[in-house]
Design a binder for these strands. Structure first.
Lengths: 165, 165
DNA sequence: GAGAACGATTACAACTTGTAATTGTTACTG
DNA sequence: CAGTAACAATTACAAGTTGTAATCGTTCTC
């Protein structure tokens, strides 16, 4: 027994770490969706843009794998981003089956705004903690994520997110 | 730029607290759904049972409010739980509009299994941490949840969860 | 009593996601 | 140098879930 009778509410569902993570995670995801809505983006689209900023010229298959989503889903996302002029599809000269997806100048601008929004979002979420506590929390969460085998930057919920306003 | 020096990657999307919370939260929710599936329950149904264990004889409206879900959604959940003999609908004698929902003996048995599963789930999630770190994490997460105005025990994602196997 | 308010229910519509089949291109192989 | 297999991208389709609006019975109030 790790928890004495007095404070064994540690593993109770409404007070345990697991439930709090699920609760806070859903809240953080919803809040982020709210923040990127004014940019006309959904969280999955934001993930696509960010990934393209890191690794330009990827194929759609590569993007889909990196983001953990299915190919048909990605097609629709790219379609919308391309229609709005944020990304372009260029044929890969070596292998014309592949499309090389890249950011346009406008896409880079949106990505910059996205970075700003993400920064604000982060600050809003950790507003209750001072710098020391934030570092502490970051260390603990990263340890959990690693133990659970989660890939950095890949959000399991990229598959289901609401539309922009 | 790849990874600038120092620790300003704290607010980068793939490493910040906000993203880690969303990532871990989605993972924890999915893992919990997986664990309750053998019991033939979805997470929302598990929430209903747990709530009924705490406050028996509630009306459906009371339950819906307490769990943060819409009435029509709750009707379907109760229907299934009642068909399986886990809960019963009794008319409120004072106000016959209300149905008083209670657990059956079998429902109490399922609730006990549910508690066991939840305990295992909690331990699996925090497996990477020792007791001190768990307490520390719990304190930090509770502070975040309070700051964000989250109601203890109410999961924002109770509205969308998969079916049992 | 007559009408407004409320709980529960049903029916409906919108949305999102996963699977399967299609097309065009490249690599392998006899 | 065919001809087949494999792969990227796309399209079409089907399934499941969720939120809104209308319906029915009951209760409170004037």
């Amino acid at each position: 027994m790790t928890s004495p009778p007095g404070d064994n509410q540690d593993d109770r569902r409404d007070g345990g770490v697991a439930f709090l993570l699920a609760q806070l995670g859903a809240h953080a995801a919803a809040a982020f969706a709210e923040r990127v809505r004014p940019l006309g983006l959904t969280p999955p689209q934001a993930g696509v843009l960010r990934r393209l900023g890191e690794v330009p010229g990827q194929s759609q298959r590569g993007l889909a794998d990196a983001l953990g989503m299915h190919a048909p889903r990605l097609v629709a996302l790219i379609d919308e981003l391309e229609d709005r002029g944020l990304v372009v599809r260029d044929r890969d000269i070596d292998d014309r089956r592949n499309y090389a997806i890249s950011l346009t100048d406008e896409g880079r601008g949106t990505l910059a705004e996205l970075a700003r929004v993400a920064r604000e979002h982060e600050l809003a979420i950790v507003a209750a903690l001072d710098d020391d506590d934030r570092s502490q929390l970051l260390v603990l969460l990263r340890r959990l994520a690693e133990e659970q085998g989660l890939t950095p930057g890949v959000h399991p919920g990229f598959r289901r997110m609401g539309r922009p306003g």
